[in-house]
């Protein structure tokens, strides 16, 4: 499952956008959003999700349970 950003908590600082190895994050209307098609949970790049590690607001970038895990997708 890819990650998602809870927009009501996002400050729009774009720190996550700069760190994403897959260019999955972009900024819209003052907050950032993750493109679930591009997010690999950082698999193959880093041990930890970069966006989660850099985000200044705890629990703002979380797993999106409604979508399947990345490696399980075809």
């Amino acid at each position: 499952m890819p990650l998602k950003i809870i927009d009501t908590q996002c400050t729009g600082c774009q720190a996550c956008e700069q760190e994403c190895p897959n260019v999955a994050i972009s900024s819209k209307n003052g907050v950032c959003i993750i493109n679930p098609k591009k997010c690999t949970e950082c698999l193959g790049h880093y041990d930890t999700q970069q966006c989660v590690a850099v985000c200044p607001v705890e629990n703002t970038i979380v797993f999106d349970d409604s979508l399947p895990r990345y490696q399980l997708r075809a």
């Binding site: 400050t11 729009g12 600082c13 774009q14 720190a15 700069q18 850099v54 200044p56 607001v57």
Partner: peptide, 14 residues
């Protein structure tokens, strides 16, 4: 420059 790479206890990134 909106992003930051550390957290300070006297700062709220809102």
């Amino acid at each position: 420059a909106p992003a930051c790479n550390i957290q300070c206890n006297y700062c709220n990134r809102k």
